[in-house]
Design a protein around this nucleic acid. Structure first.
Lengths: 113, 113
DNA sequence: TTATATGCATAAAATTCTTATGTAAGTAAA
DNA sequence: TTTACTTACATAAGAATTTTATGCATATAA
């Protein structure tokens, strides 16, 4: 994925599913730009990571695709399947638990945060 | 590492360094038990992940070791080197940034948290 | 016409982790 | 006493994910 951040390993699927849960449909390049803008350039999602991840999620039945031609260039739009809609809820809960546990392990959890 | 949690990939070094920054010295098995107790059994640190990670950190000069025999069994104690003391500060800052970015990407950041 | 941006894709290599296995000693239970 | 579990270290094979590199193709700005 990223800059100096091997920490994001394992979070890519959850990030993709969450973006699609709030955007109805997105294409690959759009996802890379969205991640870049949300993180203000700190997380750069590489194509070599993104496209295989999208293909895998589609193969698992969590994503559906439609292809369109815009300005003579092909765009492949991804959207959540019914199963994907369910799975994103689980993935987000797992991510919340993960963050909580990590904060406990790293002493980042105080009574003020 | 863990249960159903590939999310922790990449966080192991930081977890180890942080535990050693607050415990002066620990041995491998002790680290696995500490992680288990802090996370109430949710994160199980496997030997196959831990020992190679400890050896790598030692090879990088971030950890130092002393060996002791207790009850006829060998214990290899690890502690932070001077360089390790510095590096743990960086790693913790990176982890904080990571959590912030992940919360942004997953919409887990509200004005109340 | 050269570079940059858009847009997709895949293969080779690196990294990290899981699973499995091995050695060895102590303790508790049957 | 022997079986199972705990403590304690270690490594090798395989799986999974990511980086790096490359390829193709069109559009646009310099």
């Amino acid at each position: 994925m990223a800059v100096s951040n091997e920490l994001f390993k394992g979070t890519l699927q959850t990030i993709i599913l969450n973006l699609l849960s709030e955007n109805e449909r997105m294409y690959g390049y759009e996802i890379t730009q969205k991640v870049k803008s949300i993180t203000q350039g700190e997380l750069l999602l590489k194509e070599g990571a993104l496209y295989p991840a999208l293909h895998k999620l589609e193969a698992e039945g969590l994503l559906e695709t439609t292809t369109e031609v815009v300005d003579n260039r092909v765009r492949k739009y991804y959207s959540l399947s019914n199963e994907g809609e369910k799975e994103v809820v689980n993935k987000l809960q797992e991510a919340k638990n993960f963050i909580t546990q990590l904060q406990l392990l790293l002493n980042l959890k105080t009574s003020y945060s």
